[in-house]
């Protein structure tokens, strides 16, 4: 079985209409698929973390990140390979 590569996408900023939809569209556009979403709105601030399967992605890290950023220019977007979190927080 092919190893699954995962990335973590975080989107933070002022809440508004359609963030989730625009971000997911951008991710789908790069042929990556969303595995898990965790999202809260605290005090008007939107904070979303997505685990994304990028095994079959047609875009590289930078392009995918740019495409998400362009879809929600008002928000702060991070896209990182999941290994950095695993190595930092798991022994």
């Amino acid at each position: 079985m092919k190893e699954i590569k995962k990335a973590v996408v975080t989107v933070i900023g002022k809440d508004m209409v359609g963030i989730l939809s625009r971000v997911s569209t951008a991710i789908a556009g790069g042929n990556a698929s969303v595995i898990e979403v965790s999202q809260t709105v605290l005090d008007g601030y939107f904070c979303m973390i997505m685990i994304v399967n990028i095994t079959e992605a047609t875009l590289g890290f930078e392009e995918l990140k740019n495409s998400i950023t362009e879809s929600v220019p008002e928000m702060k977007v991070h896209l990182m390979h999941e290994d950095i979190f695993n190595s930092m927080h798991r022994i």
Partner: peptide
Amino acid sequence: MLNMQDIMETITMIQD
């Protein structure tokens, strides 16, 4: 499994 707190901790470390 990754949890939200760990993810935010890493991002804060790098960004702020």
